[in-house]
Design a protein around this nucleic acid. Structure first.
Lengths: 212, 212
DNA sequence: TTGTCGGCCGATCGCCGACAA
DNA sequence: TTGTCGGCGATCGGCCGACAA
């Protein structure tokens, strides 16, 4: 969803924007803090929140004097950016009510099942396999993938509800399946912005009663 | 379990002991940090961890010079300490396996039911009532208190398992019921030190499988 | 093609008295 | 007096095809 600056590339750092993002509106003393600071990206670390799976990056910046000579390393950054264009095959789906609430199953869109998941043996009746997917922490999740019903459709059954509960997914959140170059399957999540799917009519959150 | 120093009383503060309690063995530079510091208790705030219900106190200390004149306020502390002796009626029980695991019930010792709980109407068959108890956070928990079985015994049924799950109680942990001066019923917990009840044979902890 | 529903079956929860320590 | 057990009924979880959007 965002473009990450490659290591060694140059970026502008906005002190006021950073401060506002961290703690809200601020009023930096004009003249004492520059509006923007040219920096070189010294390091980028990709990270994920253990609880929410929210992903973020720590970017170390080193200020660069504007009158410094242009650096030949700039070409390296351009090359790295070009290499990033090779994206692995992936598929995202926003969870429906049935995916999140009913019966503990997940309707797999055909495209996802046929291009991202491992090939299914359609000669079996019904065709079933176990799908393993690694999340952002390296934890492997196991799902039962079955092709059944009339008309036939792909479903994730056993293992799905556990995933939904542990990740605290609700209707409107998204799930991403991704196949890496070496054939490994990965799974990621993206939570809905706010207010659930489509508006307040799905906002019937109800905290578990402690006993009253 | 512990004696809290009253506000205005004098106590000794042990820098090394405090440091070791907080982070383990330390080696304070001898001569530069006094072994003990006479202080006056300026304030005491009782608090509880929202997750674990672990209770603790924040005590604000103000150093007192040893050669200061004795303070008449010392008498206040003694009076406050004496007033603390009026303890409300309370009863504690260590949870058995049956309390923590089986069938979601809690065997209430007769003494607790008769002296701490509200009076039960024994003319009913079976005698039943709803018991409300407030925890350290002010959250009210509802329990079904019934007197049944042969021979008759007091039990908490509906509401008990919810309490056990939310508080993450296990066999060996303790529960305290307490009646305040104004008749309100309170409930507190105290977790077992380590390793469960009676040794490692009860240590069959098993983290919930993520799916693989 | 796939979102939602009702059916249905097995697992679990939780209330119960029996029994014994 | 009370800790543990087996029973059993109610509830819930979760897999299924039907059906329609």
């Amino acid at each position: 969803m965002v473009q990450m600056p490659p290591v060694h590339s140059k970026v502008y750092y906005f002190p006021q924007g950073h401060a506002e993002h961290a703690q809200g509106p601020v009023d930096l003393p004009a003249g004492r803090v520059p509006a923007l600071v040219l920096c070189r990206v010294a390091a980028v670390r990709f990270m994920a929140d253990p609880d929410t799976d929210e992903v973020f990056a720590k970017i170390r910046l080193v200020p660069v004097r504007p009158n410094d000579a242009p650096d030949a390393d700039d070409a390296i950054g351009a090359a790295a950016a070009a290499a990033q264009e090779d994206k692995p095959a992936s598929f995202a789906k926003t969870l429906t009510q049935s995916d999140a609430n009913n019966g503990g199953g997940f309707s797999v869109p055909r495209y996802c099942a046929e291009t991202i998941f491992p090939r299914l043996d359609y000669s079996a009746d019904p065709p079933v396999q176990t799908v393993l997917a690694k999340d952002v922490h390296g934890v492997v999740w196991k799902f039962r993938h079955i092709y059944r019903g009339t008309p036939r459709r792909h479903l994730l059954t056993t293992g799905w509800s556990t995933f939904v509960n542990q990740k605290k997914l609700v209707a409107g959140d998204s799930i991403v399946f991704m196949r890496t170059e070496n054939g490994d399957l990965c799974v990621g999540i993206r939570r809905a912005k706010k207010g659930g799917i489509g508006g307040p009519e799905f906002m019937h959150h109800q905290p578990p009663p402690p006993g009253g």
